[in-house]
Design a protein around this nucleic acid. Structure first.
Length: 309
DNA sequence: AAACCTCACAACCGCCTTCCG
DNA sequence: TCGGAAGGCGGTTGTGAGGTT
């Protein structure tokens, strides 16, 4: 079939170009136009044939990549929103470097873009902290400080664009000093509270997170677990094969302070991360910091309390 | 003003999987 | 069952723009 198609291609589009004639490097406007117009007429797929028939001196792979990462009409340009960043952090904690899989849950964003974001922003922070970006220490730091800050941004965006904000996360100074250990009844109340409205409900369609389930996975994880990412509270069980099984709670009760269930956090390791954070801060090596000194002292204080228990 | 540095992102590379004859 | 072609994916590199010294 494919061999036959190759012959057809040869007949239709003339002799196969030699590899030496293949172009590399940045695409020109003319090439983009050729590719776009050809796909508009004939559709995607069979990229090698497409490249030849469209008169492009590019490999099929190159054409596919250019189309998927740049020319496709539904590609979203511009900076990632805090919501998207949160989602990336959350999904990466679950799936690791499965960029294409993560990209499936960020409409208009490409795996390449997400990969670049992770390498340039996230790994940069890890480097500056002298922490392995795939380590539990770094995950802890991200969860305790980065995610709450993003959540705060999300909340600010939300409250500035809405007249009525059902979720009063702004009342919870994020990352305000968590109650530690969290009052058991508070946790229970929060979990069982029927009036609790999550931030995710303010930012995503009600069924958005319900759609985040991988039907092809053999994991037995239920959609409900994913409908409640740890960035927004409730329980989240990050894949246990990474040794990260813990729960976070952002208390959005108007009258009370924010509470995390920090159970399971490895403070011994996290504290050394804090030392690094502080050290880098003090040496002015961290620009565009994800955490500030308040974060650091809160993290330290939590660790001390944890050690006393 | 020029040299240097950093960062973001487009593009490439190589490996793996899938499909099909 | 095997081999080749094509597609998909993650890692890496190249490059231009903007900032800093």
């Amino acid at each position: 079939m494919r061999a036959a198609m190759a012959n057809i291609t040869k007949n239709m589009c003339g002799p196969v170009e030699e590899d030496s004639e293949l172009r590399r490097g940045p695409w020109t406007l003319e090439e983009d136009t050729l590719l776009t117009h050809y796909i508009a007429r004939h559709g995607e797929g069979r990229w090698n044939m497409l490249a030849k028939c469209a008169g492009l001196k590019r490999t099929g792979k190159s054409c596919r990549l250019r189309w998927l990462n740049y020319l496709k009409p539904d590609i979203k340009r511009g900076n990632l929103t805090p919501q998207e960043q949160l989602l990336i952090l959350e999904l990466h904690s679950k799936w690791g470097n499965r960029w294409s899989k993560i990209a499936q849950h960020l409409p208009g964003r490409t795996d390449n873009e997400i990969k670049n974001y992770w390498r340039t922003r996230v790994q940069k922070q890890a480097r500056q902290l002298n922490i392995e970006s795939n380590s539990k220490r770094f995950f802890d730091a991200v969860r305790c400080f980065w995610m709450p800050r993003l959540l705060q941004k999300v909340e600010q965006t939300s409250s500035s664009s809405q007249t009525s904000v059902p979720c009063q996360l702004s009342d919870c100074t994020v990352p305000s000093l968590p109650t530690f250990p969290p009052p058991a009844n508070k946790t229970t109340d929060w979990e069982n509270s029927s009036s609790a409205i999550t931030a995710q409900e303010t930012m995503y369609p009600p069924d958005y997170f319900m759609n985040i389930s991988d039907q092809t996975e053999t994991e037995t994880e239920t959609p409900q677990q994913l409908t409640s990412p740890n960035v927004y509270g409730y329980n989240t069980h990050v894949s246990s094969n990474q040794g990260l099984e813990q729960s976070y709670y952002y208390n959005i009760d108007n009258s009370s302070s924010c509470g995390y269930n920090m159970e399971g956090l490895s403070f011994a390791s996290s504290m050394s991360a804090v030392d690094s954070i502080e050290g880098n801060w003090m040496s002015n090596e961290m620009t565009d910091n994800l955490w500030n000194m308040d974060d650091i002292w809160q993290f330290r204080e939590l660790g001390e309390k944890a050690n006393m228990i």
